Simulated assay, not measured.
Amino acid sequence: MAAKNDLATEPADRVLVITRIFDAPRSLVFKAWTESEHMARWFGPRGFTSTVLRNELRPGGAYRIHMRGPDGDDHWMQGIYREIVPPERLVMVGSWADAQGNLTRPETTLTLTFEEHDGKTKLTLHQAIFESVTARDAHQGGWTTSLDCLAEYLAAAQSSRG
């Protein structure tokens, strides 16, 4: 008998988990994810530019980000912050949307945990539940290059500090 899709069970093939170690303090990595001026400098797959249109960093607060791809195509993502525990955890529900703010894909929940790791930060990204394996795989590619951009941004931010 197949398991029901409820909060207690997640279909493993439609869940994305990425773990990365960043050579930066946890507080800085958390700020890079939560402060608009930081997010605009790295957020999005490689080659994309991002504008943070809304960022109400509080439980129940909304966020909306416009990304322009290297091909000139526009992409919007938006959602609601569910949990914010600085500098340890960030949970948000969101989706892709159109220019007018109408959702174009099913919502997923993105959970980020930030852990101290030998003077560095271990980030675990958990996103679920995708509508298909194809959607999960597309997000894996996007998040992988986004996290590469974050690593480069953090390195530059730290070297400019001193």
Rank of each mutant, 00 (worst) to 15 (best):
E116T: 11
E88S: 12
M92T: 02
K122E: 06
W143L: 08
L147S: 14
E152H: 07
E88W: 13
L150G: 03
R136T: 02
E88P: 13
L112S: 11
E115W: 14
L147N: 07
H139P: 03
A156R: 14
G119S: 01
G141M: 10
D98K: 01
V93T: 15
A156W: 04
T144K: 01
Q127C: 09
Y153I: 00
E88G: 13
T134L: 07
E88D: 12
V133D: 05
L150P: 05
W143S: 08
Q100K: 13
E115Q: 15
P87F: 13
F114E: 14
V93E: 15
S132W: 06
Q127F: 09
T124W: 09
Q100P: 03
K122M: 11
A128H: 11
L90T: 14
E131K: 10
L123V: 15
R89D: 03
A97L: 05
A128Q: 06
F114N: 14
G101S: 14
G94N: 08
I129A: 04
A99G: 03
V93I: 13
G119E: 01
S95I: 01
S146M: 00
T108H: 05
A135W: 02
A128S: 01
G94I: 11
W143M: 10
E115C: 14
K122W: 10
D137R: 15
N102V: 04
G101D: 09
W143D: 09
E131Y: 13
T108C: 05
A156F: 10
A138D: 07
Y153N: 00
H117T: 08
S146N: 05
L112N: 07
L112R: 03
T111V: 12
T113I: 01
T109W: 04
L125T: 06
Q100M: 12
L112C: 09
G101A: 13
S146Y: 01
P106T: 08
L90S: 03
H117R: 09
G141F: 12
A155S: 06
T144A: 08
A135E: 04
A97Q: 03
A151H: 05
